[in-house]
Design a protein around this nucleic acid. Structure first.
Lengths: 145, 145
DNA sequence: ATAACTTATTATCAAATGATAACAAAGAAG
DNA sequence: CTTCTTTGTTATCATTTGATAATAAGTTAT
């Protein structure tokens, strides 16, 4: 089979839309009492890329430095993340989830996993393997970091 | 190969994160002069699911009806989308992109496609085919609508 | 018919987020 | 040493977004 890059882009755009929708559906019922949507986004980002400096976080998420600083301060005040001084460069501060931040995100992921398990209930092993391999392929190609 | 559903969930979570990041990187340089982030999100959604009633849009995107109505009004005023009365039920109004809304989104997708093409420059046909099949598998399984 | 429900609108207020300026401390470069 | 750059903070204001109440018109059920 021959695949044009144009057609592949259409597929990818569609995949991204579906992934976004799935994420929305898996997270919409989460508590979220104590934190704002942006703060949750930051926590989710930290749970994937950690530790990270404030500048890097600002750059990766497209949030200005002053606003990044403000939000991280709020999250730190809430005990959900913590700052670590860089040993070599005393200007830099790394941010990571605190123990309770990790716990908090673990809850989120558990909730999402429940919904995921419902969705793949009764799916055969062969198909699961196929899905796993498909994700592997994508992460190795377009979605590599 | 045997894949546990737990492991597959981890992979999926990682895929969603990567897809989100890729989408961010492909869209961050877009003009966005005339519309707000939320309005862009709505336009992107419409370009995938169209036409749709205000209620459905409200439900799908998790935006309250009053706020959905307000944002659609703004987009309509800007000439980017239009409402169509439902023939059967005179309460309902369908929303779809206008011609200039379609044009606007076509520009966005063209920009994204440029970045995508850079990313897959020099990738072999065999690998493109593999990617295409992988996306097909995912859309047929977890990411089906 | 009328009561209950659905769909959409307008108005209003509160909260979250974005943008900018001014500042300070540390490091890098000349 | 002093100049320039990087990293982060605080303060402030504007804009965007969320939440709620009140309303109106159309549909459905009783």
């Amino acid at each position: 089979m021959m695949v044009s890059k144009e057609a592949l882009f259409e597929q990818l755009a569609s995949l991204i839309a579906s992934a976004h929708q799935l994420h929305y559906e898996m997270t919409k019922d989460l508590p979220m009492d104590d934190i704002t949507p942006l703060q949750y986004e930051i926590l989710e980002f930290l749970s994937v890329k950690q530790p990270i400096t404030l500048s890097q976080l600002s750059e990766c998420k497209g949030i200005s430095m002053p606003n990044t600083s403000r939000e991280i301060k709020k999250l730190t005040d809430k005990g959900l993340c913590e700052k670590i001084d860089d040993a070599g460069d005393r200007r830099k501060q790394y941010v990571r989830l605190s123990a309770s931040g990790e716990a908090r995100m673990a809850e989120s992921f558990t909730h999402m996993k429940q919904l995921f398990l419902q969705r793949v209930e009764g799916v055969q092993d062969a198909e699961l393997t196929q899905m796993s391999e498909a994700i592997g392929v994508l992460r190795a190609t377009v979605l590599r970091d």
